[in-house]
Structure formats: structure tokens, C-alpha cells
Computed example of a mutant assay.
Amino acid sequence: MSEEFEIKNKVASSGLINFDLADLVPKGERKGIDLKDFLFMEMILKEKDFREKVEAIPTAEYENTYVYIYNSADAIVPLWAYFLITAKLTDITKKIIFGTREDLEVILMHNAIQTHDFDELKDKRVLVKGCSDQEIPENAYIELVEQLKPIVKSLMFGEACSNVPIFKN
């Protein structure tokens, strides 16, 4: 094929680095524990019954998982109740939090971004992928910009064919 008809990939030759936040999403199963299941009539915490139910938690089901504890009942639960469940599971789970599944994802992405080594992006032109097969919390994009702004040459968002310039250093 002659050079005048050669197809060139301008994106590949541009020095643009594609960064996909989905690559930082921690792998592993997410499991929720609803405190209402530990309450008498889903309303009242009876300490003895609560302790028995916590002791009966099938720990094998939570091994190497990410766990979020929440309360779907309209009941006031003392803080020590969360302590008991956490003490039961903390040695076998990857992470355990109080909140929703969404809260868990925000915390996991926060930890992933804070601990990721971004050195390979130093002084580079970076394009953060705009579409992902995984749901990424919006806060993760904010934290990513905080991490990248001091080190990258420029930052864009979207896809190579249609991106939005964010900043240039």
C-alpha cells in the first residue's frame, strides 16, 4: 500500500494516555446486612437476642467480601450494635462500613484513588474515559481530578473522538 493511501491512527500517535477509572474498582462481592433482621419485631433491640443473632451470623458467607451494614427499619439502634457486628466480621471481610451500597462504593473508590500510583501519568496528556461498563461514583471523578491536576500536562474527559478539555498545565 502506498504511503499516500495509508491509514494513520492519529489518536495512537498523539501521546494521549487513556485512563479508565473502572480499572481501579476493587474486585469482589458486595454484601449488605440489614439490622432490622436482628431486631425483635423489626423494631426493638433486645441485647440478649441481638447478641445471639450476631453470634449466629454465617461468617463463611462474608469471607473476602465488601460489607455494608444498614438499617431499613424505623428503629433507633445503639452504636454498640454496629460494634458487635463489625467485631464479628472484620477479620474475614475485605472492608466493612455503615451505610448503603452506594456509600460503600464511594469509600472503596476513595481508597483506590488515594493509594493508586499515578507516576506513569506524570507530565502526560491524559484522557479519562467517559463511558464505562461499571457504575462509577461521581465523587471518584472529583477525587481523580484532585490527584491528577498537579502532575499531568493536560486532562480531558470523554472519548478520543469527542473529548472535553478540562485543563492544561
Score class of each variant (00 low, 15 high):
57 I>L: 10
58 P>W: 04
59 T>P: 03
59 T>V: 15
60 A>D: 15
61 E>G: 05
62 Y>L: 09
62 Y>G: 08
63 E>I: 09
65 T>D: 08
66 Y>V: 01
66 Y>A: 00
67 V>D: 00
67 V>I: 07
69 I>V: 09
72 S>Q: 08
74 D>Y: 14
78 P>C: 10
78 P>A: 11
79 L>D: 13
81 A>R: 04
85 I>D: 04
86 T>I: 13
87 A>P: 01
87 A>F: 09
89 L>N: 02
92 I>P: 06
93 T>V: 15
94 K>E: 02
95 K>E: 03
95 K>W: 02
96 I>W: 04
96 I>D: 06
97 I>V: 08
99 G>P: 01
100 T>L: 09
103 D>Y: 00
103 D>K: 02
104 L>H: 02
104 L>E: 07
105 E>C: 07
107 I>F: 06
108 L>C: 03
110 H>G: 10
111 N>P: 03
113 I>S: 00
114 Q>G: 05
115 T>Q: 11
117 D>R: 06
117 D>S: 10
118 F>E: 03
118 F>H: 06
121 L>M: 04
123 D>C: 08
127 L>K: 10
130 G>M: 13
130 G>K: 12
132 S>A: 14
133 D>T: 13
133 D>Y: 10
134 Q>C: 10
134 Q>Y: 14
134 Q>G: 02
134 Q>M: 12
135 E>I: 14
136 I>M: 01
137 P>T: 01
138 E>H: 12
138 E>K: 12
139 N>C: 13
140 A>H: 07
142 I>T: 14
146 E>C: 10
148 L>M: 08
151 I>V: 08
151 I>L: 09
152 V>Y: 03
155 L>G: 02
156 M>P: 00
157 F>Y: 15
158 G>A: 11
161 C>G: 11
161 C>V: 12
162 S>M: 14
164 V>L: 15
164 V>G: 07
